[in-house]
Structure formats: C-alpha cells, structure tokens
Amino acid sequence: MNKLAYTVFVAFWASMATLFAVSGIASGERAQEPKTQAQQEDVLAEITMEELARHDHEDSCWNAIDGKVYDVTDYIPDHPTDPEVMYEWCGRESTEAWETKGYGRPHSRRAERMLEPMLVGRLKEK
C-alpha cells in the first residue's frame, strides 16, 4: 500500500466531514440570528448613485452589479484579485467588471453565491 496516498485519502475525507459539520452547525446558528436590514425588508432598500458614490474607499467599498448593491469591504482582502484593482471599482456601477473579470469571462456561479451575503440594497433607477 502507498502510505502517502492512503494518508491523504483518509485526511481528505476527515477534512471534508469536518468542514461539512462546521458549516452545518454554523448555518443552524445563523438561522437564529437577526437578519440584516436589507434582508428584513420585503423590498430591498433603494440606494441612490450619490449614496453608492460615498462608499468609494477601502474602509467602505460598495459595488453595484446588475441593479443590486453589495458591500464587499470585508471580502476584498480575501479576493484573488489585487486589492488595488478592486478599490478602483468602489462606489461605482461594476457590472462590466463583474461580467468581464476573467479575460472577458464572467465570474463563476460559486462567486455569485459568495456575493449574495454581501447584498445591502437595490440601486435606484434614475
């Protein structure tokens, strides 16, 4: 038997089971937490372009994507892209950047799911 392959095989399933259990427990706890203001309202809060533009720096970075506004401030350090590139889009309509990020290709569905918890409102139409 190849000991390295066996060790990695066992470690893989152990880590998968642990991550799954942790995410399950955390999801259960979160279900009891109060919802965010945006999530509490049946209709998403309307955010004007002026308000969006105020969140144009690294301490508060909002992006408007497909008519929805997301607060990505806390996620920027964990994003694979250079933070400086991300900061350029703070406080702006960023759908183009979202759709063409990967050499003209849109973000993955996994990325879409990662964006959902950052939703803060709906961009007010002019």
Binding site: G24, S27, D74, Y75, P117, M118
Partner: peptide
C-alpha cells in the same frame, strides 16, 4: 470569508 453557507455550497 463569504460565510459558512457559501462554504457549504462548495462542498
């Protein structure tokens, strides 16, 4: 960093 629910959806 995006939340435990998002991590669960990778699994």
């Amino acid at each position: 960093p995006a939340g435990h629910g998002v991590m669960a959806q990778v699994l």
